[in-house]
Every structure is written in C-alpha cells, then in structure tokens.
Amino acid sequence: MRNFDYHRPTDIAAAIEAARADGAEILAGGTTMVDLMKIGVWEPQALVDITSLSELEGYDVGSDRITFGALARMAEVGDDDALKTAAPVLTESLWKAASPQLRHAARLGGNILQQTRCPYFRDTAYAQCNKRNPGSGCAALDGGETNLHAILGGSDACVAMYPGDFAQALVAFDAEVTTKGPGGARTIPFADLHVLPGDTPHIETILNRGEIVTGITVPVTGALKASHYLKARDRESYAFASASAAVGLDMDGDTVRDARIAIGGVAAVPWRARAAEDSLKGGPLTEETAREAGRIAFADAVPLEGSEYKIKLGADVVAGALMTAHARATGGE
C-alpha cells in the first residue's frame, strides 16, 4: 500500500475542501477502498474519513418517503423490522449482500459506489484494463474469462459488472441521491448516478471531485410494500449474485397497476428493466406473464463466452421474484 495522508474532518465543508484536492479520496466504511488500496489498484495520496460527520448517520422510515443518511450501516438498515414491512426489497437486498462483518462496517453511501469485482481490474499484473488504466485495453475481452461479466450495458472498452445488490432496489424504486460538493448541494435521480462505460469506463458516476454523497431517498409507492429481492448465488451467503432481481408489484384486483423490475449480477450499472415492467402493466400476473417479463428483461443482452447461462438464469430469477412479490401483493405471503 502506498503511504497516504489521512484527514478526519468534523464538518462537511472541511470534508469537501479536503476531498476536492488532487489525489484525495473519500473514506467511509472502507470495505472497498482499503481492499483496493492493499492490492495496489487504488493509490490515493490522501484519504478523507467522513465517519465523524454525524449528520450523515441514521435513517428514517416515513409514510411517504424513506430516507437514509450516507453513513447508515448496511447491517442496521438491513435488520430494521419496520423497514422490512414497509419495503422488503430494501432490507433483503442489504442482508443478502456480503457477510455480517462487512455489513457492520460498510455504509450505504459507499455501498452504492461499490467497485466491480472484475478480476482483471483487481489484478495489477494486467496492464490491460481500461477502467484502471485508461486506454490500455481490456484483458477480459482479449481472450479472458468472461463468465462473470456484464451482458447488459458493456462496451468494447469494458464489460466489468456492477456487483451491488442494494442499488438494484434503489434504481427500481426511483430513489434519489443527495450530495454536497464544491458546487453546493444537489439531488440526483439514482438512475443517473452511474454512467455506462462507453469509451471511458474509468468514469463511473456523475459525481464531481470533492462531491460527497450525503443521503438516499426512496419514495413510498404501492409496489414498494409488495417488493422482493431475489438473489441467485452459488453459495448460500457471502457471494455475489450470478443473477438477481429487485421487483415490486402494485395490484388492482387481478390487474398489475404498477410493476418495478431491476436486475443485478448481469449489467455494467444498476439496471432497470422498464420494457419488462411495461409488459406487465394492465394485465394479470401469472407464471406465464412473469416468465415473459423475465425474457423481455434480457432481450437486449449480449452474452459473452461462458455467460450465456445468465440470460436464462436471469429471466428465471425475475420470474421467481415476481411470483413472490405477487404473493405479497395479494396477501399470499
């Protein structure tokens, strides 16, 4: 690990000031940052530890909106009983992520900015990585192993997969992110936070240098209460999704009034499947329509060598998640 300066400001203005400097990075739980620093992928000159900014802690489960401070811990939110009832997709996508140790350390603001697990990004022995080393190429696409890479949203420059779970729930339910930075405060639709890799995979979000995520807001909707996060993984816990789905349904009798679908473990960024949602609206939710929605969610998928299975797996996971959401929406669970 490269030596670095360490700052722990106690007010946000000082944090922004320290974080806008060249080579500075923001540190919260550190579960990604410190990991990548140890293996030499990230080499910041300075870390700005924001964990003393107590105003960014906590969360509130309101009747029309749910708000999270950026420093709320994955564990405390994932274990919250009131939230479990109000918005199961939010708690499920948190407690099914990582391990208890990581969930206790990791904060929500950092979680949504989680880095890819692309092995080529993580191994500095590979000079070729457009994300880590812009313009150097992509070892995955250059004959490498791609069974865990993005089949949606990738580019010729990068097929790294966004590995997070909570972000799928946020993108499906129209969450917003609040920030404070050198240019002041702003609110960003969650769907706009991450940017597709295109030709510049090293640019991952629209956040500016020194801009600190302060919170996340999720509007309460009918579909949020009857929501579900289904995560298919090769082991029961502490594994990234092979495919996952964050879904919710608002039913008007037998008719789908509103449907929400986002898919994880398959795309370059948190991925909302709007066409699949639209296919359900105004019709019944049956095993057949659920499976069709799953297929539509992956209609534009471009499988890479070894990842063909993800199209079928992902479609099945969307369908299975919808069946559970339907049971929740209709009092079946």
Binding site: L230, A232, E236, L313, D316, V317, A319, G320, A321
Partner: peptide, 8 residues
C-alpha cells in the same frame, strides 16, 4: 430451486 436453480 425451480426458479433460481440454486443447489443446496
């Protein structure tokens, strides 16, 4: 599992 194909 019939939906996720997970093996336990």
């Amino acid at each position: 599992h019939r939906w996720t194909h997970e093996i336990r």
